[in-house]
Computed example of a mutant assay.
Amino acid sequence: MTTDDALAALASLAHPTRLAAFRLLVQAEPDGLSTGQLVDASGLSQSTFSSHLAILVAAGLVIPDKRGRQMIQRADIERLRALMLFLAKDCCGGRAELCAPLVTELADCC
Rank of each mutant, 00 (worst) to 15 (best):
E105G: 05
H52R: 06
A41P: 03
K89V: 08
T17G: 11
C110I: 05
A9G: 10
G60P: 02
E97D: 07
L102T: 15
G94T: 03
T2G: 11
M1K: 02
S51D: 13
E29W: 02
G60L: 15
E105C: 11
E29G: 06
A100T: 05
L33H: 00
A88I: 15
L85A: 12
R74H: 04
V103E: 07
A100N: 05
S45Q: 09
R69L: 10
F86T: 15
P101E: 04
T17S: 07
E29N: 07
S34T: 02
E105F: 14
D31L: 06
D76N: 07
H15E: 03
S51I: 05
S47Y: 14
R18L: 01
C99R: 12
L44E: 02
L61H: 04
L61T: 11
L25M: 01
D76C: 15
D108N: 08
P101V: 15
Q37G: 04
T17V: 09
C91V: 11
G32N: 04
F86M: 15
M1N: 03
F49Q: 05
L83M: 13
H15P: 05
C110S: 04
M1S: 08
P16S: 05
A11H: 06
A107D: 15
F22E: 03
A88H: 14
Q70S: 13
L33V: 00
L25P: 00
L83Q: 02
D108M: 15
A75S: 01
L98Q: 10
L53T: 08
P16G: 09
L56R: 01
L56C: 11
A54C: 14
C110A: 10
L53R: 10
D40R: 08
G60S: 08
L19T: 12
T104P: 11
Q70A: 09
D90K: 13
L19H: 13
I55H: 15
R18F: 02
D108E: 04
L38F: 07
L10W: 15
C91I: 12
F86E: 12
A8N: 10
A82W: 02
G93R: 13
A14S: 11
L83E: 02
P30F: 05
C92N: 08
D108V: 09
D5Q: 06
E78S: 13
C99Q: 11
V26R: 14
A6T: 00
R23H: 09
A11P: 13
Q70Y: 00
F86Q: 13
A58L: 08
K89C: 10
V103G: 04
F86N: 07
T3P: 03
L80Q: 11
L38C: 06
S51T: 05
A9H: 13
V39Q: 13
M84R: 10
D65W: 06
P30D: 05
L38Y: 07
T17D: 14
E78L: 05
A88N: 07
I72P: 01
F22R: 10
A100H: 09
M84K: 07
L53I: 12
A9F: 04
R79Y: 01
F86I: 14
D65C: 09
P64S: 03
L106E: 14
V62F: 02
D31P: 03
H52D: 06
L61D: 03
D31I: 05
L25F: 03
R23T: 12
V62T: 01
D65K: 14
L102V: 02
L83A: 03
G43V: 12
V103S: 10
D76W: 00
T48N: 06
Q73P: 01
D65V: 14
L13A: 02
L13E: 02
R67G: 00
